[in-house]
């Protein structure tokens, strides 16, 4: 099992990370961060394989991946 840490406040909700997740685990949340964006959230942490595609795609270095 892998662990994702999302820096919610720096996420701009562009969704580019979600598009590259091979497990389709990422989607924008309904919450709004202090800069007015819907940050990304992971639906099922247990399904994450820790490939870090999401983190490498993110323009804002929001995601940390541990395994």
């Amino acid at each position: 099992m892998a662990k994702l840490t999302i820096a919610v406040e720096t996420c701009k909700g562009c969704g580019l990370c979600a598009d590259v997740c091979p497990r389709h685990l990422l989607a924008l949340s309904k919450e709004i961060n202090s800069r007015g964006y819907h940050p990304i959230a992971i639906s099922d942490q247990d399904q994450c394989i820790g490939c870090a595609f999401c983190a490498r795609m993110c323009p804002d270095a929001v995601i940390k991946v541990e395994k």
Binding site: A2, E9, T10, K12, G13, C14, G15, L16, R35, Y37, G50, A52, A55, R56, P59, D60, A61, I63, K64, V65, E66, K67
Partner: peptide, 20 residues
């Protein structure tokens, strides 16, 4: 173990660029 994290060569300042 850390697979991927933000490099320390970037500061903590949030980037002003547009989303995406």
């Amino acid at each position: 173990a850390v697979v991927y994290e933000k490099t320390k060569l970037l500061t903590d300042k949030p980037l002003h660029y547009c989303p995406g």
